[in-house]
Design a binder for these strands. Structure first.
Lengths: 203, 203
DNA sequence: TCGGTGATTGACTGATCAGTCAACCTGGTA
DNA sequence: TACCAGGTTGACTGATCAGTCAATCACCGA
């Protein structure tokens, strides 16, 4: 791209991406048209294809962009020596839950349209999704090594259950009503970490 | 349907349903054709529409049929006075995990093609999905009332995390390799119940 | 044997839509 | 001012497919 237009060009690209997220969230990837995205972005149909290779490519980018942020946070949480295992897990859960709080459409698209589509996007991005599992598993594994968490549950298993728990909570918010107040979201994170770490057995 | 043909008719209907499950699992609901189902079932295209109202209707039936079994098991587990809370949860988890062991295609379709499609099937069947959450929540709630489980985690929240954990485990099996040996599946159930009830904190 | 009902067939229709393309516009540069 | 590269337009094409339907078949009871 020519230097002089980079800024404006990038902005338009972003506008299309944002419009696509809204359209995907409202109608679903499989039930919307590329023309819906163009309309939502207020541009001509063909311009979408000037900025993106294909409809699939737009969804890929929405997912990868968000997921990269999440992987970063997981790495950060794993690397921060000052945190306890619970705090690390809470940091990961908080990021995901707050992502939903701030960008519910994006998270809906990531979870509903990508993560679970076994035969298309899910399978395509499975390795990337596993990176998140692996990062969480590493947090658990290191805490097990120091005795901070019990060692008789496989870390990768714990990670999958932990992530699955968050995802299902978000799913219930997507299908029903999500908590609008930050305090409610904070409480969800607390309950999640407490359930996974503390367990449901009486104290 | 005329009495004389009921048996054969029901059998053919079942054959189409089974073929559809195989096709949906392999290609995904959105990427297969009704003609694929007909081919897989070894029948003419038009016959599919003699037995089913629409392509969507077939998926609905696959989901509802399986989900009804699950709801039954959850009710059973909740009602059986001889079981502890852990045993009730283990019973539910075992049924789901063993459903996958016996009918991986069906479970893949239920989880991947229905459960998470927020804008089409997911939303349509959300109330039914919630019935399962509610059943599990009831198990938790009653155990909390007797002091068998701690009372400071909302039952509905615990239920969502529990179900989400199972679902994510199955998802990882669907995308990767599922354990083929019954013992491995049994261990998965044990780990799940242990994680949710016992927690990851050291004993 | 005949009549009729449900089962079965597959060609066809109508609609949908992703992606292409040739023309046009615009704003910066020489 | 003239030029041009990238931005922008939207009509069009080609392919795909869900669902229809008129014709044919097969089996049962009368």
């Amino acid at each position: 791209m020519a230097p002089r237009t980079t800024a404006a060009s990038a902005e338009k690209r972003r506008a299309i991406l944002d419009a696509a997220v809204r359209v995907f969230a409202e109608r679903g990837f499989n039930h919307c048209r590329v023309s819906d995205i163009a309309d939502e972005a207020g541009i001509a149909y063909g311009l979408v294809y000037h900025y993106f290779k294909s409809k699939d490519g737009i969804l890929d980018e929405v997912f990868l962009e968000r997921w990269a942020l999440m992987l970063e946070v997981i790495e950060e949480a794993a690397a921060d020596e000052s945190l306890s295992a619970r705090e690390r897990l809470a940091k990961v859960a908080t990021f995901i839950v707050e992502s939903y709080g701030r960008h519910p459409d994006v998270m809906q698209v990531v979870i509903v349209e990508v993560t679970r589509q076994a035969n298309t996007f899910g399978r395509k991005h499975w390795a990337t999704i596993q990176d998140a599992h692996a990062g969480i598993a590493r947090i658990v594994e290191r805490a097990q090594a120091t005795g901070e968490l019990r060692a008789d549950i496989p870390p990768s298993f714990a990670a999958i259950v932990f992530y699955g728990g968050i995802e299902q909570v978000l799913t219930s918010w997507i299908f029903d009503t999500a908590p609008s107040r930050p305090a409610d979201r904070r409480r969800a994170v607390e309950h999640l970490v407490e359930t996974i770490c503390g367990g449901l057995d009486p104290r």
